[in-house]
Write a protein that binds this DNA or RNA. Structure first.
Length: 832
RNA sequence: GCCCCCGUAGCCCAACAGGCAGAGGCAGCCCCCUUAAAAGGGGUCGAGUGCCGGUUCGAAUCCGGUCGGGGGCACCA
C-alpha cells in the first residue's frame, strides 16, 4: 500500500489533511465571535455587523447521522460566508440533552440516563469537529446540566407568578400493561408502542402554560416574519392556531340558574337550532343529565372514555349520543329544544357544547337523522332541502324562517343576529382558537424537576429562588416504578421535604418538564452559557439577538418554533428581552432520504454518515449535500454523487498544484472578466441562499481556470492566480479542508478563510457588448452583437435591417416592434 | 373537507423582475492519457417545461381549471 501524499504526491486524499487544518483553525481562534457578551472581552473590531446564525440544537441520540450533516452543513456555509464578508459571526452549539430516549436506552442497557447522554454528546462533538463545522465552542451548553435547568425552574416560577403557569386535570396516555404514561409518539394507532396493548386515557393533575393567552399575538406577529420565514411554515402555524370568529350564544336551561353558553361561527342560523349537544366527556353533560337518564348517560360516557384515537380517527363513523332528558331554550325562537350528550362534540374546543343546526351543518344533520330530530332550513341557498337530501347546505344565501331577519344575506345576518343577541344580553361577538394551552408536565425522570412543593396545609408552594436548582436525584429512584407513577415518586427520600412556607412535612412535585421548555429559550443562553445572574446574560442577548438566521427542519413548525415564539413574548412581557420574535429569518432544510423513503433500520436503507465520511471525506459529503438541490428540498442519497463531489475537489486541488509563480503581465483580460462576473453572480447566490446554484457556478469557474491554465493564459498568468484565489476563498464555505489545502499548495499564507470574500470589480463585470435576440412573431430569427448601451431606436433599426430578418419577413408589413434593449427585439408582422 | 408547497432532458437540478428553455452534476456515448485499475483529461448526445384553456407582441414564469406527488389541519361547531 502506498502512503498517500508520499508515494503518490499527485493523488488527492479527501481525508488526509483534516487534523492539520482543524489545529490551524483552532490555534487561530478563527470561529470565535468577537466580544460575546461585551465589547471589552476581545473586541478590537466591534464595528463589524454582528450575525447570529443558529441551527436547531441536536438531541444526543447516538452519533451524528446524515440528517445532522445536512442541517449543520447548511448553517455552516452561511456562517462561513458571513464571516468572509466581514461579519462578526456567532455560530453556537449546544445539546438538547434531556428527553425520553435516554430513559429507554438506560433501561435497555442498565445504566443511568446521564451516562448514556453525556457519552453521546462527546461522540457528537467530535464528529462535528471532524465535519469541519465552524462552531464557537465557547457557547457549548447542555440542557441536562443543573446549571442550565435551574433556569428552566426559575422561569417556571416567573410564569407562575404571572399566572401563565397553572395546574389542572388533563388526560394522559396510559398503558395499563406497562403501567406507565406514554408520550404521543409512543402511541401507535392507539396501541402502546412497546407492548401493543390498547392505550387508555387517564386524568392527571398537571401543569400548563397559557399559550392560548398569546394566540392572537402569535398570529399578529407573523407579519414580522412574512417574507423571512417560509410561507409553508407560517401557513402551518396559522392552521395550528386555528382562529375562528363568531359569537357566544347563551341558552337558558330549565332548572339551571346560569344559562349554558355555546360558540358558533354561524349565528345567522340560530333559528334553525333544533337541538343542543354537549360533549359526553365534559363535566357539563354529567351536570345537566336528568336522574331518569343517568344510567343510560353514564354507560355511554364510559364507553366514550375508553374510545381513543383509533375510534376518533375512523372516518365517517356513525353519530351516536344519548338524550339527557333536559331542554334548552332557543333564545330567538323561544322553543324548548332537547339536549343530547354526544362524542362528536369536543369537550376541549369552545365551551364543549353546541347549538345544533342540522340544515346547515353536516355533522348536526347526520346526528339529527340518527336520532330522528327535526331539520329546519333557515338559509335559502338555492339548493335542495337538506331534510330530504341529507346534505347540509353551507353556502351563501338569504335567510328564511327567521322572523324579522328574513331576507337578509348570510353575511349581513351574521352581523344582525349577533348584534341582536348582544343587545338582549343573550350573547356576544367572540373569537376562539384551536390552539390549546401547553401541557408541560411529564411523568418522566430525565427532565427538569418542577420546582413546586406540595404541602398538606399550604398547598402548592414554589421552591424559593435561592433553593434552586432542584436537582434530579442521582440514586434512589426507579425508572419504571411499580405503579407507573412518575419515576420521581419512587425517589422517596428526594421527594420528602419540609414546606418552605410552614416548615411542615411536604412533598416535591414529582413530574418533570416537557423538553420543549428547555428549547423554547436555549439560544438566549449561548453568548454566556455559564451566566449565574439569570437565565441569560442580558448584555449578550442585546448584542446577538434576535437570531439573524435559524436553520432546522420543518417538523418543528408547530412544536418548537411555536413554543420559542411564545416564550420570547413572555420574556418580553417580563422585561427580559427587547424583542417579540426570536428568529428574524428561518431556513428549512429537507430530509436526507434513500431510494424515495426516509431512512430506517427496518427498511434497510440506512446510509451511515461515518462510512460516507470515510469514503469521501467531510468536504465531499458537505458539497454533495449542498449541491443536491435547494436547501429546503429532500435529498435522495440515491440520486446524488459524492464521487462527483470528490472529483471536483480533486480537480481544484490538482489545479492548485499545476500553477506556477505568477509572471509580471497584466493577466488575461477575458479570464478576469469571466472571473469577476462569476464572483458577482455567486455573491448574489449566497445572499439569496441558492447554495446549490452557487456550487454549480464554482464548478464553472473551476473549468474556466483549468482551460486557461492548460491552453490559454497558462499556469503563470496572474489572471489565473486571481481566479484561483477567488475560487478557493469562496470554496472554503463548502469545502474548508480542501480550500485551505489547495491554498497552501499555491504557497499562500494560511488560512484561506482569513483572506475575506472576493470583491467583484464592477468595471470588469460590465459587459461592453451583448448578444441580442431578434424575434419575428416570438421566434428567434437572428442574433446580433450590440453595444450594451445601445438605444432603442438604434437597436430597432439594426434589427429591421438585418439580412435574415428582411428575408424572414418576406415583404410582410410590420405591425409592431417591441424593443427591450439590449437583449431582445420582437417584430410582429402582419399575417401573410 | 379546508389550507400550503411542488411537477423542466433517463436522473438530480438551473433559467434575475414574463423576454433566446440549459448553467452545473449523475448516467450514457466518443476521443485522449494511463492501462494493473480509474475518484485522470477533453468532448458529445439530450427536454419545449404534467395536461387544457386564458391574458400578452412574447408564458416554465401570471390567471382559471384539471391531473399527479408531497405536506399541514380536521367531527374545531
Amino acid at each position: 500500500m502506498t502512503e498517500p501524499g508520499i508515494d503518490a504526491p499527485d493523488k488527492y486524499d479527501p481525508n488526509l489533511a483534516i487534523d492539520k487544518w482543524l489545529r490551524v483553525w483552532e490555534d487561530k481562534h478563527l470561529f470565535e465571535a468577537d466580544g460575546l457578551v461585551d465589547a471589552g472581552t476581545a473586541g478590537q473590531d466591534d464595528a463589524r455587523p454582528r450575525s447570529c446564525v443558529v441551527s436547531m440544537y441536536p438531541y444526543p441520540s447516538g452519533d451524528l447521522h446524515m440528517g445532522h450533516a445536512e442541517v449543520y452543513s447548511i448553517s455552516d456555509v452561511i456562517a462561513r460566508y458571513l464571516r468572509l464578508r466581514g461579519d462578526n459571526v456567532l455560530n453556537p452549539i449546544g445539546w438538547d440533552s434531556f428527553g425520553l430516549p435516554a430513559e429507554n436506552a438506560a433501561l435497555k442497557r442498565d445504566l443511568d440516563p446521564s451516562t448514556w447522554t453525556y457519552a453521546n454528546i462527546e461522540v457528537q462533538a467530535e464528529s462535528f469537529r471532524r465535519l469541519g463545522v465552524s462552531f464557537d465552542w465557547r457557547t457549548r451548553l447542555h440542557t441536562s446540566d443543573a446549571d442550565y435547568y435551574r433556569w428552566n425552574q426559575w422561569l417556571f416560577l416567573r410564569l407562575l407568578e404571572k399566572g401563565i403557569a397553572y395546574r389542572k386535570s388533563a388526560p394522559v396516555n396510559w398503558c395499563p400493561v406497562d403501567k406507565t404514561v406514554l408520550a404521543n409518539e409512543q402511541v401507535v394507532q392507539g396501541k402502546c408502542e412497546r407492548c401493543g396493548s390498547t392505550v387508555q386515557q387517564r386524568d392527571l393533575t398537571q401543569w400548563f402554560f397559557r399559550t392560548t393567552q398569546y394566540a392572537q399575538r402569535l398570529l399578529d406577529d407573523m407579519a414580522q416574519l412574512e417574507g423571512n420565514w417560509p410561507s409553508e411554515i407560517l401557513a402551518m402555524q396559522r392552521n395550528w392556531i386555528g382562529r375562528s370568529t363568531g359569537a357566544y350564544v347563551d341558552f337558558a336551561v330549565e332548572g339551571r340558574a346560569e344559562p349554558v353558553r355555546v360558540f358558533t361561527t354561524r349565528p345567522d342560523t340560530i333559528f334553525g337550532a333544533t337541538f343542543f349537544v354537549v360533549a359526553a366527556d365534559a363535566p357539563l353533560a354529567a351536570e345537566l343529565c336528568a336522574p331518569e337518564n343517568r344510567a343510560e348517560f353514564e354507560a355511554y360516557r364510559d364507553k366514550v372514555r375508553t374510545e381513543t384515537e383509533i375510534d376518533r380517527l375512523a372516518a365517517d363513523r356513525p353519530k351516536t349520543g344519548v338524550p339527557l332528558g333536559r331542554h334548552a331554550l332557543n333564545p330567538v325562537t323561544g322553543q324548548q329544544i332537547p339536549i343530547y350528550a354526544a362524542d362528536y362534540v369536543l369537550a376541549t374546543y369552545g365551551t364543549g357544547a353546541v347549538m345544533a343546526v342540522p340544515a346547515h351543518d353536516q355533522r348536526d344533520l347526520d346526528f339529527a337523522k340518527a336520532m330522528g330530530l327535526p331539520v329546519v332550513a333557515v338559509l335559502d341557498t338555492g339548493e335542495d332541502d337538506p331534510a330530504t337530501t341529507g346534505v347540509a347546505t353551507a353556502g351563501d344565501g338569504t335567510l328564511v324562517n327567521s322572523g324579522r331577519f328574513d331576507g337578509l344575506a348570510k353575511a349581513d345576518a351574521i352581523e344582525a343576529v349577533t348584534a341582536d343577541l348582544q343587545e338582549r344580553g343573550a350573547g356576544e361577538r367572540a373569537v376562539i382558537y384551536r390552539l390549546r394551552d401547553w401541557l408541560v408536565s411529564r411523568q418522566r425522570y430525565w427532565g427538569t424537576p418542577i420546582p413546586i412543593i406540595h404541602c398538606p396545609s399550604c398547598g402548592e408552594v414554589p421552591v424559593p429562588d435561592d433553593q434552586l436548582p432542584v436537582r434530579l436525584p442521582e440514586t434512589g429512584y426507579e425508572l419504571r416504578s411499580a405503579d407507573g407513577a412518575s419515576p420521581l415518586e419512587s425517589a422517596t427520600e428526594w421527594a420528602a421535604v419540609d414546606c418552605p412556607s410552614c416548615g411542615g412535612a411536604a412533598r416535591r412535585d414529582t413530574d418533570t418538564m416537557d423538553t420543549f421548555v428547555d428549547s423554547s429559550w436555549y439560544f438566549l443562553r449561548y453568548p454566556d452559557p455559564t451566566y449565574t445572574g439569570g437565565p441569560f446574560n442580558p448584555e449578550g442577548v442585546a448584542r446577538w439577538f434576535p437570531v439573524a438566521e435559524y436553520i432546522g427542519g420543518k417538523e418543528h413548525a408547530t412544536g418548537h418554533l411555536m413554543y420559542a415564539r411564545f416564550m420570547t413574548k413572555v420574556l418580553h412581557d417580563l422585561g427580559m428581552v427587547g424583542f417579540t420574535e426570536p428568529f428574524a429569518k428561518l431556513t428549512n432544510q429537507g430530509q436526507v432520504i434513500m431510494n424515495g423513503r426516509s431512512m430506517s433500520k427496518s427498511l434497510g436503507n440506512l446510509v451511515n454518515l461515518q462510512e460516507q465520511l470515510g469514503l469521501y471525506g467531510p468536504d465531499a459529503v458537505r458539497v454533495t449535500m449542498l449541491f443536491a438541490g435547494p436547501p429546503d428540498e429532500d435529498i435522495d442519497w440515491a440520486d446524488v454523487s459524492p464521487t462527483g463531489a470528490v472529483k471536483w475537489l480533486a480537480r481544484i486541488w490538482r489545479l492548485a498544484g499545476d500553477l506556477t509563480t505568477p509572471d509580471a503581465t497584466d493577466g488575461d483580460g477575458e479570464l478576469r472578466q469571466q472571473t469577476h462576473r462569476l464572483v458577482d453572480e455567486i455573491t448574489t447566490l449566497f445572499e439569496t441562499r441558492r447554495l446549490n446554484v452557487a456550487v454549480a457556478r464554482l464548478m464553472e469557474l473551476t473549468s474556466l481556470l483549468r482551460k486557461a491554465c492548460d491552453s490559454g493564459a497558462g499556469p503563470a498568468d496572474p489572471a489565473v492566480h486571481e481566479g484561483m484565489s477567488a475560487l478557493l476563498r469562496m470554496l472554503s464555505c463548502f469545502a474548508p479542508f480542501t480550500a485551505d489545502e489547495a491554498w497552501s499548495r499555491l504557497g499562500l499564507p494560511s488560512s484561506v478563510i482569513e483572506h475575506g470574500w472576493p470583491e467583484a470589480d464592477p468595471a470588469l463585470v460590465f459587459q461592453q457588448t451583448v448578444v441580442c435576440a431578434v424575434q419575428v412573431a416570438g421566434k428567434v430569427r437572428d442574433r446580433l452583437t450590440v453595444a450594451t448601451d445601445i438605444t432603442e431606436t438604434d437597436l430597432r433599426d439594426l434589427a429591421l435591417n438585418s439580412e435574415k430578418i428582411v428575408k424572414d419577413l418576406a415583404g410582410r408589413a410590420v405591425l409592431k416592434v417591441i424593443v427591450r434593449a439590449p437583449n431582445l427585439v420582437n417584430i410582429v408582422p402582419a399575417k401573410a
